[in-house]
Amino acid sequence: MNETDKQMILSKAQQWFLDTIAENHIVNTRKLVDPGEFNINPFLATYLANFLTGNSSPESIAKALVYPRVLGSSITTSFGTNVQKFTSEVLSSFGSTTPGIDIEFTDQVDGHKKYCQLKAGPNTINKDDVESIHGHFGAIQRLSRTNNLRIPSDDLIVGVLYGEHSDLSGHYLRLENDYDHPVIVGNDFWHCLTGDDTFYHDLIAAIVQVAEKADGKRVIEDTIQALAATDRIIQLSALSQR
């Protein structure tokens, strides 16, 4: 893969992250000016406000409500559920027409053609996914034999976009240990795809640039101030100070 191709992936990844992740994140953050967006537990809200800031002022309560929602697991879930969109928009040049395969590429490390299912992170498959993935890979091997081709198990891989091999869940490890399908993770995956052992870090840096442009700090601060000014949060603060 040449430098132009790598820069194209980085540019597409930035645009995908901006359009699919960052913009939705900002929209969902701005919704939090309404107390109705929260299932407020008055005991925990005031406790967490004090735990966070040392007081239960309206602003502190708003922070205790907003921070977990904005910085919590929902954006991780959003990233995971949009992997297919990432595949079609960012890695479209590697797209596969083989059922059950997301991308096909020539491994830039070992030179073998790889048939790859893409997953977001090291904890994003469950028990049923293991059998499904192995089933797809088995069907491909049977079809290849019918066509007088040989595709070994270690060329049928799962590519994980981020993380370390040591972070893999037991479900991923079953694919490797029980079914001999390699799970290539994070830096190793991007190295195999691009031939550049620093590409993963370049990709992270490209996404950071999106965050800088999004100005999330201002959005969060404005949301907290608006939420803190609502009657419900003001009343909750007053009750906690009796």
Rank of each mutant, 00 (worst) to 15 (best):
1 M>I: 13
2 N>R: 08
2 N>V: 00
5 D>S: 11
11 S>C: 12
12 K>C: 02
12 K>T: 01
14 Q>H: 09
16 W>Q: 03
16 W>M: 05
19 D>N: 13
22 A>K: 02
23 E>S: 14
24 N>Y: 06
27 V>S: 06
31 K>Q: 09
31 K>R: 15
36 G>I: 01
37 E>Y: 00
37 E>W: 01
38 F>P: 05
40 I>H: 01
43 F>K: 04
48 L>R: 12
53 T>P: 00
58 P>G: 04
64 A>Y: 04
69 R>Q: 14
78 S>F: 10
82 N>K: 05
82 N>C: 01
83 V>A: 06
87 T>Y: 05
89 E>T: 10
90 V>F: 07
94 F>A: 08
94 F>V: 08
105 F>T: 05
108 Q>H: 07
109 V>P: 02
110 D>T: 04
114 K>V: 05
115 Y>N: 05
115 Y>V: 03
115 Y>L: 11
117 Q>V: 13
124 T>A: 08
125 I>N: 00
127 K>R: 10
130 V>I: 04
134 H>P: 00
134 H>C: 02
135 G>F: 05
142 R>H: 13
145 R>K: 15
145 R>L: 13
146 T>E: 15
148 N>L: 15
155 D>I: 10
156 L>A: 07
158 V>A: 11
162 Y>S: 10
162 Y>W: 13
164 E>S: 14
164 E>W: 04
167 D>H: 14
167 D>A: 11
168 L>Q: 03
177 N>G: 06
177 N>I: 12
181 H>W: 04
182 P>R: 15
186 G>P: 05
187 N>A: 15
187 N>Y: 02
189 F>L: 15
189 F>P: 07
191 H>R: 10
193 L>G: 02
193 L>V: 04
196 D>E: 08
197 D>G: 06
197 D>Q: 11
197 D>H: 14
197 D>R: 13
199 F>D: 02
200 Y>C: 06
201 H>N: 12
202 D>S: 15
203 L>M: 07
207 I>D: 00
210 V>R: 00
219 V>E: 09
225 Q>C: 06
228 A>N: 00
229 A>M: 07
232 R>A: 13
232 R>N: 09
237 S>V: 04
239 L>Y: 08
242 R>L: 12
